[in-house]
Design a protein around this nucleic acid. Sequence first.
DNA 1: ATTAATTATGTAATAATATTGCATTGAATA
DNA 2: TATTCAATGCAATATTATTACATAATTAAT
Lengths: 153, 153
Amino acid sequence: MSLCNKHETCVDDALMKADLICKDKGLRFTEIRRTILEMIWASHKPVKAYDLLDKLQKYMFSARPTTVYRSLDFLLENGLIHKLNSLNAYIGCTHPLKHHDCYFLICSNCGEIEEYCDSNISDTIKINLDKNDFIPKKTSLEIEGTCNNCLKN
Amino acid sequence: MSLCNKHETCVDDALMKADLICKDKGLRFTEIRRTILEMIWASHKPVKAYDLLDKLQKYMFSARPTTVYRSLDFLLENGLIHKLNSLNAYIGCTHPLKHHDCYFLICSNCGEIEEYCDSNISDTIKINLDKNDFIPKKTSLEIEGTCNNCLKN
DNA sequence: ATTAATTATGTAATAATATTGCATTGAATA
DNA sequence: TATTCAATGCAATATTATTACATAATTAAT
């Protein structure tokens, strides 16, 4: 499922983009925030808050739930990660520079997530909501199923 | 937002349909399950599990979290209610007889939910997933925004 | 009708997820 | 350098959900 061939590149890229964005917006990309983002990017699987906490506590004794949730809030607010509501888990955003509504394909076999930003879907939703006089602010679309990689194997 | 004019009818209707479905499928629509469904239908707003528990405990001393969650599981499995993942809350299904993927318009102003089953959206999603070789099993689409009723007022 | 099997409920404990409030520290800026 | 604002430390607690095992009720099999 994952389109990433060389995972190291992919993490580095995410951190670099985050640096850029924070610099640009005058945000403080502190060590904790950077570490949490890095941990989230360690895989293409959704990551749970308390798993992040466990990892963090390995070398940061003072880490508490708030430590993690505050960083998650910061990363969410600034479009660097997404929350998957159906899983209570978090995943890195692949295109934080151009942040817009994203959809998620969740493979229930391998656990990987594909971020899927399809303008056809966005447009269809938009058109139908217009008809219905509903002004959308935030869209969450999560589709659980079997990914192409798992289908092949 | 709510399309329901006379709410009593709407609750009765939901319970009647539930009766039918359970009879048809040979399921046991016990008093607890019926009560929970009725409580959920008491409004067109999403209902929280522990609010159901509080209500239930008013006249059922022995009610516990499991009491509620078991009924919720039953109702979810049999398509009588939906879970709104973005809110950790539950809402009745308006067409349990023909159960399929439903989408939700969540008004962040008045708190009401509109169940929105649009085949255009379903089709668009399906077509695009086909292109992507992804076999969907369960789709969750929740759109938060402002409803037409709140826009008018 | 009686027994066995299955399903539903009672009950306690605890796990998993997340937030609040207040004190302290550190960075930015006036 | 003093001030202000943002970030973190820390404890407590709120919210959401599950597990495990016992008992009761219903259904199915004999």
